[in-house]
């Protein structure tokens, strides 16, 4: 219980946090979508329960629980949640998306090298020497360790000139 929720007078003009409302709405929407599409899958066949039965039940549970949660929030809004550091989320997610998009084209070694360099040098502000050593070990080193040590193949570049120099 935070001071904020204690200060809110029960029953009168309670304010549910927008993020909580969005969450409840999203779960309810997923529930409705599942309910509708599982009817299309077939709830019951001549052989017994159909492929849609179990999802139908889960969709129902989601919708019902979202409703209960909304009622709980309206009666007594939950305390303010811990904030999220948007800078961290954006930096990590965007760099991961770029890495995943470029991995097949540039190969694991080059794309991972750049990814690690970004996180170590630009975000982490480590020295050039330690950044380069760790980035090399994590990209080229990991590639050879997985390929030859564990027999797990990591992707090589689809771009011929890079491929030819072993990347």
């Amino acid at each position: 219980m935070t001071t904020e929720s204690l200060l809110t007078k029960p029953g009168r003009a309670v304010r549910v946090a927008p993020s909580v409302l969005t969450g409840i709405g999203a779960f309810a929407a997923v529930g409705v979508y599942v309910l509708v599409s599982s009817v299309g899958l077939g709830l019951w066949t001549s052989l017994g329960p159909g492929p849609g039965l179990f999802p139908f039940a889960m969709g129902g549970v989601l919708v019902a629980m979202s409703a209960v949660w909304l009622i709980q929030e309206l009666r007594q809004p939950s305390g303010k949640a811990e904030g999220i550091d948007r800078g961290v989320v954006i930096a990590v997610v965007v760099s991961l998306v770029l890495l995943a998009s470029l991995m097949d084209l540039l190969g694991f070694q080059l794309s991972m090298f750049l990814f690690l360099l970004y996180h170590l040098k630009l975000r982490g502000r480590r020295t050039w020497v330690s950044s380069l050593i760790i980035a090399l070990a994590g990209s080229v080193g990991a590639f050879y360790a997985f390929n030859y040590g564990l027999n797990v193949a990591l992707p090589v570049s689809a771009f011929t000139p890079l491929n030819l120099i072993g990347l």
Binding site: V92, L96, L99, A100, S101, M103, D104, M112, F115, L116, H119, L120, R123, G124, R125, R126, S130, I134, G138, A142, F146, V152, A153, L154, P155
Partner: peptide, 22 residues
């Protein structure tokens, strides 16, 4: 910062190698 970078590295390898697919 070094630990974060290395953990991210392992996560990417882990997710990729299950089906060898991005």
């Amino acid at each position: 910062s070094i630990l974060t970078a290395l953990i991210l590295l392992f996560m990417v390898i882990g997710a990729y190698t299950i089906n060898f697919s991005v």
